[in-house]
């Protein structure tokens, strides 16, 4: 039995989870299918041509990257699309009229985005292990990066959802920020295969650290130390959380 004090935040969290579950074909099945298509095509083309780590087939190398990429994109999509839809439809008012604090709003939205991200990641894992053997070197690292990666992008989604006023602004955010950062983060390759300049550029991309650290959990091998990746991810998470809470507290674009 949940106490009245926490029921508000629990209800909003539950509603946000139901919201994506109601359209699970779009929010869960579709990203899983997309990831599998990437897996099919890239593994078919590159399996015999590319080997990133010794003893690790390219298809196996690809799976954690695709899992993480999908988790990040979906965690972002959950918070951002929920907020922009509610803003455009006008039904955000039902939440703004409640006694929920800005922190409670953040926790509920973020919690649901993490659940969606993890559900997508787990589904890709469960489907892809039918095709290729995927080792698990360290489960703790896998869980830590999955959790904080989803949290980071869920938080980023809250910022985008508050900032955007129209669907095309949100689409621009997704296509010009999220997509390039995920695709250029080492999902399909090791950054060691890149020329020096692009290796340096990649190291400024926080998505690289999430994927590299997550991959370490499977193979025990990575481009940089997982501890460094964790520090970078946590630093970004703290920074974006601070920005988000500032925005929510001030009522930026939500309360005039």
């Amino acid at each position: 039995m949940i106490s009245a004090q926490y029921r508000g935040v629990w209800t909003l969290f539950k509603k946000e989870v139901w919201r994506f579950w109601r359209v699970a074909f779009q929010t869960l099945a579709s990203p899983v299918l997309t990831a599998l298509l990437y897996l099919l095509i890239f593994s078919h083309v590159l399996e015999d041509r590319v080997q990133v780590y010794e003893d690790v087939p390219y298809t196996a190398f690809l799976i954690p990257g695709l899992m993480m990429m999908s988790m990040l994109q979906n965690a972002f999509a959950n918070t951002s699309s929920s907020l922009i839809q509610s803003k455009v439809m006008g039904n955000l008012v039902f939440i703004l009229l409640t006694p929920l604090s800005y922190l409670q709003l953040f926790i509920a939205f973020l919690g649901a985005s993490i659940i969606r991200g993890l559900a997508v990641g787990l589904a890709i894992f469960l489907v892809s292990v039918w095709f290729v053997h995927l080792p698990i070197a360290n489960l703790a690292w896998i869980l830590v990066f999955a959790l904080f990666g989803c949290a980071l992008l869920g938080t980023f989604g809250v910022i985008a959802g508050i900032w955007a006023e129209k669907f095309d602004q949100m689409a621009a955010f997704q296509n010009f920020v999220i997509m390039p950062l995920t695709f250029l983060s080492g999902v399909f390759y090791s950054i060691h295969s890149l020329p020096g300049f692009w290796q340096t550029v990649s190291k400024f991309n926080p998505f690289f650290y999430m994927i590299d650290g997550f991959r370490y959990g499977f193979f025990g091998k990575s481009d940089v130390s997982p501890w460094l990746s964790l520090v970078v991810v946590m630093a970004f998470l703290v920074l974006l959380t601070w920005v988000t809470l500032k925005m929510l507290k001030s009522g930026y674009k939500l309360r005039g």
Partner: peptide, 25 residues
């Protein structure tokens, strides 16, 4: 004043959610 609604849920669900936001179970 505006006729706004959440398209994902039915009437009873929406009302229970709304009460829940206020701590009502």
């Amino acid at each position: 004043q505006e006729l706004v609604f959440d398209p994902f849920f039915n009437v009873r669900e929406m009302l229970r959610f709304q009460a829940g936001y206020f701590g009502r179970g």
